[in-house]
């Protein structure tokens, strides 16, 4: 995989809440048009690290990020970096489906509207249609675009949120346990959607499901919270090809975790 293009690169990233470390010294490269999974027990900081990748932590009081995170070579914590643009490039899908209390159409159109991504109404219609198609939702909702997005089923809502995220044409999509609130069938749909999205987008997904990480991801990163206080120089324990992390882990703790010994 030596010809892989690096989309985001992180070097020595620390994230602290009110001075207390939640992420210690994480360095990793996130590859373009691949699915990268973050796994680890609860409280290990994987979601915190994910949110550091598009500065969603900025809105949290007392949160301090140090180290260097670059998107296509540009430091996203640099002074001149505007979070509005950053989050257009690095979109986010949340754990619980959170459509806006608006119509399906308006949910998808909101991003393009605030970023001014279209000139005419028909261009916006195209963006909405393509985004919903991209999220595999178009056939289900094309006849009721004016219905409220909150009226959809949980799985449909989550795919609407994905459509909303890709409508602003991001390069990276961050997903924070996107299927954890869904039933198995809806989960399968989201998973296959993630794989197809990887053809065009770089995807980083936090998941609690080992099976899901194995099914959807190309690369896997294992985070471990106890390392924050122990002697380890980082709480990113292991990062490599998914196949290798699950079948032939280097670190003993990774092996125990993927075998289900704790978590």
């Amino acid at each position: 995989m030596s010809d892989d293009e690096i989309r985001m690169s992180c070097k020595g990233v620390d994230v602290a809440y009110w001075g207390e470390l939640a992420i210690k010294n994480v360095s990793m490269d996130i590859l373009s048009k691949k699915v990268t999974a973050f796994i680890g027990p609860s409280g290990c900081g994987k979601s915190t690290f994910l949110r550091a990748l598009n500065r969603m932590n900025d809105t949290i009081d007392g949160c301090q990020v140090t180290g260097e995170i670059k998107l296509d070579g540009n430091d996203i914590y640099a002074k001149g970096m505007d979070t509005v643009f950053l989050r257009q490039w690095v979109g986010m899908v949340f754990q619980k489906p959170n459509p806006f209390p608006k119509s399906i159409y308006e949910n998808v159109a909101y991003g393009p509207r605030i970023h001014g991504l279209f000139r005419t109404k028909s261009e916006l219609d195209d963006i909405v249609e393509q985004s919903l198609m991209g999220a595999g939702l178009w056939d289900e909702v094309k006849d009721r675009l004016r219905n409220p997005g909150t009226g959809l089923s949980g799985g449909q809502q989550q795919r609407l949120c994905i459509a909303r995220a890709i409508a602003v044409n991001p390069e990276v999509i961050l997903m924070d346990e996107p299927a954890s609130a869904l039933d198995p069938i809806a989960t399968r749909k989201i998973e296959s959607l993630i794989k197809s999205l990887a053809e065009n987008y770089t995807i980083v997904i936090v998941t609690h499901s080992m099976a899901q990480a194995q099914r959807v991801s190309d690369k896997t990163a294992f985070f471990y919270a106890a390392s924050l206080t122990e002697d380890d120089d980082s709480n990113l324990i292991e990062y490599g090809d998914t196949d290798q992390v699950f079948n032939n882990p280097i670190d003993e703790r990774t092996r125990q975790y993927v075998e289900g010994a704790f978590g």
């Binding site: 969603m56 989050r87 986010m92 899908v93 959170n98 909101y110 605030i114």
Partner: peptide, 11 residues
């Protein structure tokens, strides 16, 4: 979640 979703889209 509304606020978060909007911020996540770059609002």
């Amino acid at each position: 979640s509304y606020r978060e979703a909007a911020l996540g889209l770059g609002a």
